[in-house]
Design a protein around this nucleic acid. Structure first.
Lengths: 210, 210
DNA sequence: TTTACCAAAATTGGCGCCAATTTATGAGTC
DNA sequence: GACTCATAAATTGGCGCCAATTTTGGTAAA
């Protein structure tokens, strides 16, 4: 964490620092356990001290980093128990809306899902870890949006982040990633066939394997 | 919001301002739509400007207040759609762990639930709105804790707050509150009988009526 | 050689000031 | 009398400084 490189500041500029730090945690650039020194972040992201502090506080609220008073903030270590529990929650929720998804799916929305699934597959070969992560997220958001429950989409997006601190350990092998890509298409096929039970089974398996 | 009363500052002192504002929103002291002027909060809770700002930012993250740049923060108006969606989520989750709750319940934990249910009943008559809210929360937390999923407990506690901005409109009549109290006991009874299906039905009804 | 203690450097975090933007007020005009 | 524009008041929000605490490095003693 002492690589005081100059300015990777994204061109967008007025964007929030929180997102940049979040991305670096999710992609593993900032490894679990790392102490996030304010002065380093300040320089690394080219922003001011109060901005860094606000970002750290937000990430602490989201339980992505831990705050130790007078000691600072550090990235959470991967927590096996929590990962397991979040998986359980996701299974309950995502299988719980399987019927709604199947009945709400139009030809158009299935088409859109296919595009996103293809994008994911493409990113396996051509994209960065971040692009892959975001392609996956986009697919699952679109899928859940079919439930008609916007709060659910946001909620799952949120709790997904809580355990993805170690995406490396989750997506260890390329074989698993490719398997995920195939499962996306299988889920689309189940929706096309109006087979909610099959969608549930696939969803459960998909979440359990990561 | 121009009642610049002196200092209701709680005796505890080093506690977080965020919780005080949160309580006042949940109990309706700070009504939906109210603009939260920093200088007022500063005086009302006897704290500094940065503390107020941090609290407002946290509440905005939790979607309890809305931030309008250069205009300030105001308490969210009750959102029918969101309330409905959060209700759906709660039903899926809480009925989804009904089996686990029933099978994990020991004689001791049932006893503990009974005490909390009685406390709630007591608060209907003797307590303030905040005490009632907290007694209700305590019962449901204890109930969900039996699922063995700590993340789930925290998650539901969190999303509960997102729509309880208008607890007054939710718990309009005393009749409904008393009905809630009775349902708590019915749920305990279902657990004691090992009847997960009955617990699901009660849970669903309990959430739908508020 | 190891341990305890002290001093110096570094880091966190509280606090207040001031610029930028918005809202309210009042005067002038149609 | 109502509308518009300009000026003044109020509010938000960015930024930097300094005190408090912790950590590190060095020195002296056992």
């Amino acid at each position: 964490m002492n690589d005081s490189q100059e300015k990777p500041v994204a061109a967008g500029e007025e964007s929030d620092v929180t997102d940049f730090i979040l991305q670096d945690i999710l992609t593993g650039v900032l490894a679990p356990g790392t102490w996030l020194k304010q002065i380093d972040l300040e320089r690394r992201y080219g922003c001011t001290r109060p901005e860094v502090r606000r970002a750290l506080d937000r990430l602490a609220q989201k339980r992505l980093v831990e705050h130790v008073p007078n000691r600072g903030y550090h990235v959470y270590e991967p927590d096996g128990r929590r990962a397991k529990e979040v998986g359980e929650i996701r299974i309950i929720l995502e299988t719980g809306v399987a019927e709604a998804i199947v009945s709400n799916a139009s030809a158009e929305s299935i088409k859109k899902l296919s595009v996103l699934a293809d994008t994911f597959d493409h990113m396996i070969l051509m994209g960065t870890m971040l692009e892959l992560y975001e392609a996956n997220l986009a697919f699952h958001r679109e899928l859940l949006a079919l439930s008609g429950n916007q709060e659910l989409v946001d909620l799952i997006t949120e709790i997904r982040q809580r355990t993805s601190s170690a995406p490396v350990s989750q997506w260890r092998t390329r074989a698993r990633i490719e398997q995920s890509g195939r499962e996306h298409h299988l889920m689309i096929e189940a929706i096309r066939n109006g087979d909610a039970e099959e969608l549930k089974i696939l969803t459960k398996r998909h979440i359990l394997q990561g």
